[in-house]
Amino acid sequence: MPKEVTHEMLAAAMKKAVETGLVAKGAVDTETYIKNWEALKASIQAALDAAE
Rank of each mutant, 00 (worst) to 15 (best):
L48F: 07
T20N: 15
T30R: 11
A17P: 13
A13N: 03
Y33S: 03
S43K: 03
K3H: 10
K35Q: 08
T32E: 15
E38W: 02
E19N: 14
A11E: 11
V23W: 01
Q45E: 05
T30K: 10
A24S: 14
V28S: 09
A39N: 06
K3T: 13
L10S: 01
A11P: 00
A24R: 15
Q45A: 06
E52H: 07
G21P: 14
L10D: 01
A12P: 03
W37I: 01
E31V: 13
L22K: 15
D49Y: 00
E4M: 08
W37R: 14
A17S: 13
G26P: 12
A11F: 07
D49K: 07
A46G: 02
K15H: 15
W37G: 00
E8G: 04
T20K: 14
S43P: 00
T30L: 07
M14G: 00
M1N: 13
T32K: 15
I34R: 09
A47L: 05
K25M: 10
D49V: 04
M14Y: 15
E19Q: 15
G21K: 10
M14A: 14
T30I: 10
D49M: 01
L48K: 12
K3P: 00
D29V: 09
S43G: 07
S43N: 03
A11D: 12
A46D: 04
A17W: 08
L10P: 01
L40I: 00
K15L: 14
P2K: 11
P2L: 08
T32Q: 12
A46P: 01
A17N: 10
Q45V: 02
I44N: 00
K3G: 11
Y33E: 11
A12S: 09
L40C: 02
P2M: 04
K15C: 06
E19S: 14
K25G: 06
A27W: 00
M1L: 12
K25W: 10
T20L: 12
V18S: 10
N36F: 08
A27M: 14
Q45T: 04
K35M: 07
T32F: 06
A51G: 03
K15T: 15
L10Y: 03
V5G: 07
E4Q: 12
Q45R: 04
V18F: 13
E8S: 08
A17I: 06
K3S: 12
E4S: 13
A51C: 00
L48C: 05
T6S: 14
T32V: 14
L40F: 05
L22N: 12
L22D: 15
H7Q: 08
A51H: 07
G26W: 09
A50Y: 01
D29I: 07
K3V: 09
G26S: 13
D29L: 05
S43L: 05
E8I: 01
V5M: 13
H7C: 00
E38L: 10
A13E: 12
A51E: 10
V18W: 11
D29M: 03
D49E: 09
S43H: 02
G21L: 11
E52C: 05
E19W: 09
K35T: 08
E8T: 11
A51Y: 06
E8L: 05
A50L: 02
K3E: 10
V5P: 06
K15E: 15
T6L: 03
L10I: 02
T32D: 12
A39E: 06
H7S: 04
